[in-house]
Design a protein around this nucleic acid. Structure first.
Lengths: 231, 231
DNA sequence: TAGATTGTTAATCGATTAACAATC
DNA sequence: TAGATTGTTAATCGATTAACAATC
């Protein structure tokens, strides 16, 4: 086993260059750094600093340097970071060196919007399939793909080689669909259905719940107005 | 000033019943508990336990009890929690006792889908306005509301009394639109545009970045396949 | 009373921050 | 060399977990 090629795991967490695991909180910020670097590169800058990059990403310079230190030492003291090189390193760490294949399940209003969302393709992914249970939707073309039937989900995953799925079905069928995706071999699921999904340990779930986000905002809204007394 | 009615603040964080602040991590889980309680109530249960509720919400019973303890003591030892009462308490804490008015800015594919998303109304919010910069969209009716022009944003906020905004504009105009929302008096913003938004301290921002979520999933996907050697 | 289940405590764990030595 | 900026350390802070006394 070639240690330079293989990924070493430390306590179930992917190891960085030096064998240290990358903390989840750091992983969650890496996409923001990558995006900030792309903006910097677009302006033609060759070098950048933790100050500049942190400002763009909306974190503190200390936080940024700490995060990058988990990946390795990609900056030069007194100089800064090479934009192209750091961009490349983060791309590799995030697993975006190879394009990831994404399957979208549930082509309703939201699924339709996401299928046409350019940001997905721009940031390392290919949409390889669309699946829905509604006969009226199956067979139609959305974002250049023909929508296939939910009954064929397993075959679609096998044929397309999708490893990541976006789940935009009604909440009532989310868990069942999730189970089918897992059975088909998908290892990452981004769900927009409210409610917790149960998955085996080797599967990763991220949940976007719009109403929950609004409720969190409402908490602060209330905290703000309650003291002041708007009357 | 009546202490029983007014909200006390501790270090800028809203205080719970006993004056202790509610930790952000706890606040972020409250919507999940509320939803679990609604499901429990829908099944006709009058009492529930930390075990059952935690399982539904996808957290540990210890976590749930700890979280609820920040709000006060709403359970009975040896008995459990009264579903209706706990539901009411969390609703109040989250600031959902009064319906919150939401403005949606950017009626493209995604904005259109969100405007029609029933979950928003079901969970304590009213959509009170739609705004877009595209003359082809302004004047059309979406989700029962006539889309107004972005130039009138300030007037729309004033007229509708919206305190929370959903931002689904292109990334290029997100910061400018955000500034206008803040100037108009909005105190909570849920943005779907990638990239950090700068806002004053009294404004709360939550960001949903679909591509970032996928990239986080890609990290784990890579971690998984790199060790195993698929070929 | 006996059994069940909360609310709270203390211990552990992970994340953030600040400061500065290393080094370009 | 002098100035700049990283990478790392140590301190602080916040979140999670496990255990159990309180109490229904």
């Amino acid at each position: 086993m070639d240690e330079r090629r293989s990924a070493r795991r430390v306590g179930g967490r992917r190891a960085g260059r030096d064998g240290q695991p990358v903390p989840p909180a750091t992983v969650a910020r890496l996409p923001g750094y990558l995006r900030a670097l792309q903006a910097t590169a677009a302006e033609g800058a060759v070098l950048t600093s933790s100050d500049e990059l942190a400002a763009r990403a909306g974190v503190s310079p200390a936080q940024l340097r700490k995060d990058l230190s988990f990946l390795g030492s990609y900056g030069r003291r007194g100089v800064g970071y090479d934009v192209a090189h750091l961009r490349e390193q983060i791309t590799v760490v995030l697993g975006l060196a190879d394009v990831r294949r994404v399957l979208l399940v549930g082509v309703g209003n939201l699924g339709h919007a996401l299928a046409n969302y350019a940001g997905i393709a721009e940031r390392g992914f290919v949409l390889v399939g669309l699946v829905d249970a509604d006969p009226a939707v199956v067979g139609t073309t959305v974002a250049g793909l023909v929508v296939e039937h939910a009954d064929d989900l397993r075959a679609v995953v096998a044929r397309t080689g999708a490893t990541i799925a976006v789940l935009t079905t009604p909440a009532s069928v989310a868990q069942r669909t999730c189970d089918e995706l897992v059975a088909a071999g998908v290892v990452g699921i981004l769900t927009f259905a409210p409610g917790a999904l149960r998955v085996p340990d080797h599967v990763d779930v991220r949940t976007v719940d719009v109403a929950s986000e609004l409720q969190i905002l409402a908490f602060h809204d209330r905290a703000r107005s309650a003291g002041g007394g708007v009357s």
